[in-house]
């Protein structure tokens, strides 16, 4: 028995600007599929980051706004607090969320803001040309760590999901990946679960995605998948770090 597969309604008919093999595209589709399946396109507002996904609003067919670099969680807080009936999500990269925006995401999670954050961890600053990010791996070469990330100088990569999961406020914190179809299908369930927690007004929900950046890693898309699997997954273990039921 075969399967059908269509572009979700929430995705615009638009070829993306992302590089070949960039997993942003997969994550976009998962969000769109979940929004279609939950039937919430009419009351969803997306908050785009500053980074490769800054133009993501061109690829969705519902209300969207740009955020300033790192500030999406604060914007989403303002938006969601005055209109709690709307479904709000932020979509942020590792430079955006874990560097300049760390205070914003930590406090939004700690306040238990009832929006959803999709966090794309591809270990570099993509849009600006592959600089080192808080999630860059030890020894990983980037355009600002040409000799490899020296942990004795700039510290270890930050495991954001674990960090947020350590907050006492209930929340749904999970790390997923889109490196292979089996992971993608699992990740989709996590995204749907995250949005469902928002719809049920239960808690803050956060889905981290271990992702690839072929262009800035200097690898082909296929090699990038392999590198991410071999180098990133051991350091960024997948799974649900926290669920509201536990609290």
């Amino acid at each position: 028995m075969g399967k059908t597969f269509q572009k979700p309604e929430a995705l615009a008919d638009q070829v993306t600007h992302y590089c070949p093999g960039c997993t942003h595209g997969v994550i976009h589709r998962l969000i769109a599929e979940v929004i279609d399946e939950l039937g919430i396109r009419g009351r969803t507002v997306g908050v785009a980051p500053v980074g490769c996904a800054v133009l993501m609003y061109n690829y969705f067919t519902f209300d969207f706004m740009e955020a300033s670099h790192g500030r999406a969680p604060a914007q989403a807080t303002g938006l969601k607090r005055v209109r709690p009936d709307l479904v709000v999500f932020t979509y942020q990269g590792d430079g955006d969320l874990a560097s300049i925006g760390m205070a914003e995401i930590v406090h939004a999670a700690n306040r238990g803001e009832k929006f959803t954050t999709i966090f794309v961890n591809n270990a570099v600053y993509g849009m600006t040309g592959g600089q080192m990010a808080p999630t860059t791996m030890p020894g990983q070469r980037t355009t600002t760590s040409p000799f490899g990330r020296k942990v004795e100088e700039v510290g270890m990569p930050i495991r954001v999901s674990e960090l947020l999961a350590s907050l006492a406020t209930p929340g749904y914190i999970t790390r997923q990946t889109v490196l292979k179809p089996k992971y993608i299908n699992r990740a989709k369930k996590a995204v749907k679960k995250a949005f469902q927690y928002q719809l049920d007004n239960t808690c803050f929900s956060f889905v981290e995605f271990v992702s690839t950046c072929p262009t800035n890693w200097g690898l082909t898309p296929v090699e990038a998948i392999k590198w991410a699997e071999e180098k990133m997954l051991p350091y960024y273990p997948l799974g649900e770090m926290k669920t509201p039921e536990e609290a």
């Binding site: 399967k3 995705l11 070949p20 960039c22 997993t23 595209g25 997969v26 179809p181 993608i184």
Partner: peptide, 20 residues
């Protein structure tokens, strides 16, 4: 092709569709 849609699932550009 067995129409399992693994390729569609993996495609970052939603460039592959399967219809009945």
């Amino acid at each position: 092709c067995i129409h399992c849609a693994m390729c569609c699932t993996m495609c970052p550009d939603v460039a592959i569709t399967i219809t009945e």
